Amino acid sequence: MNIIVIGIIACEIGFWAVLGAGLGARYLLRLRKLSSILLLCVPLLDLLLLGLITWDLVVNGATAEFAHGLGAVYLGFTVAFGHQIIGRADGWFAHRFAGGPEPVKPPKSGPAHIRYEWSQWARMLVCAVIASAVIGLIVLLVGDATRTAELTGWIGRVWLVTGIWLVGWPVWATVSGGGRDSDESAAPPSIQETR
């Protein structure tokens, strides 16, 4: 198995293990300082993956493969969406183990749904920018277009996904009006309304 694939899998497992340990320390053991230290370690996993990708291409002299680009996009995703994921997990842990309020679910309709879809797409935009910047930096460090061709192909892929996300979710939600507001009745019209 490719060392970068192993690195991505290890970082994903590490993310959930460190997050679980941090939240467990906070809500089950009541050790807030230890919890904060553990949660601050989450971004270190991203730095380790970035270091592994850079080492493999620059120092080890590897030719970029699918996994190298996937690793760069994974980095962008964890930076853009990681804080939100941690916040949701924290809310669930607080509700389940510390008597906190039930976590708020994303809105399903109305103007709040439209705002939510645009905010999620903005996170994807940040992901695409970060992934493109990481790829560009690594391509510059390697300095060999033939060895980094697969890597640069990921820039187009991540921007294609970003464009599809834009049209399929926030633009669609905006054009469709965000769906029916939750307080509106879904009952069929009365006989007098149909006359």
Rank of each mutant, 00 (worst) to 15 (best):
R32T: 15
W165G: 03
T162L: 14
V161L: 09
G7W: 00
R195P: 04
G69D: 02
V142I: 06
I13L: 12
W55K: 10
I164N: 03
A25H: 01
A145V: 14
L151P: 01
I191N: 10
L48Q: 04
G156V: 00
I13D: 00
G20D: 03
W121N: 00
A133C: 10
S132C: 10
E102F: 12
C11M: 09
E117T: 14
P106M: 08
S109E: 09
V126F: 11
A10P: 02
T174A: 09
P43C: 08
F93Y: 13
F66M: 11
V161F: 13
G82W: 02
V161S: 09
W172Y: 14
G91T: 00
E65A: 14
G156K: 02
L47Q: 03
D181G: 00
V73G: 03
L48R: 04
R180A: 09
A128V: 12
C41S: 12
V126E: 05
R26Y: 04
G69H: 06
G179S: 10
F77N: 05
G179N: 06
P111Q: 13
I3N: 06
E12V: 11
L141C: 07
P43W: 00
T78I: 12
G22A: 10
D181M: 06
V73E: 00
A98P: 03
L70I: 07
K108F: 05
L151W: 00
D183V: 10
E150N: 11
I37W: 11
L57F: 02
T146D: 14
G110T: 09
S176W: 08
E193L: 12
L166D: 01
L125S: 11
I6F: 01
I164T: 04
G153M: 09
L137V: 13
H95F: 15
A133Y: 07
Q192P: 04
L31K: 14
A98M: 09
W172G: 05
S36Y: 02
N60Q: 12
W16A: 11
E65M: 09
E150P: 01
A128G: 11
L31C: 07
I3Y: 05
A149K: 12
G69K: 03
R88M: 14
V59S: 13
I9D: 06
A21H: 02
V158G: 01
Y27G: 03
T174K: 10
I85K: 10
L166F: 12
W172V: 09
I114H: 02
L19Y: 01
V18F: 02
K108T: 15
L70M: 12
V58D: 08
V167R: 01
P189H: 03
G168M: 09
V129I: 15
A149W: 08
L38E: 04
V58R: 07
L45R: 03
R147P: 04
V59N: 08
I53K: 02
R96A: 14
P189N: 04
L29I: 11
A62Y: 07
H83K: 15
S176T: 14
V161H: 04
I130T: 07
G24C: 03
D181Q: 10
N60A: 15
R32D: 15
A149G: 05
R115P: 00
L137F: 11
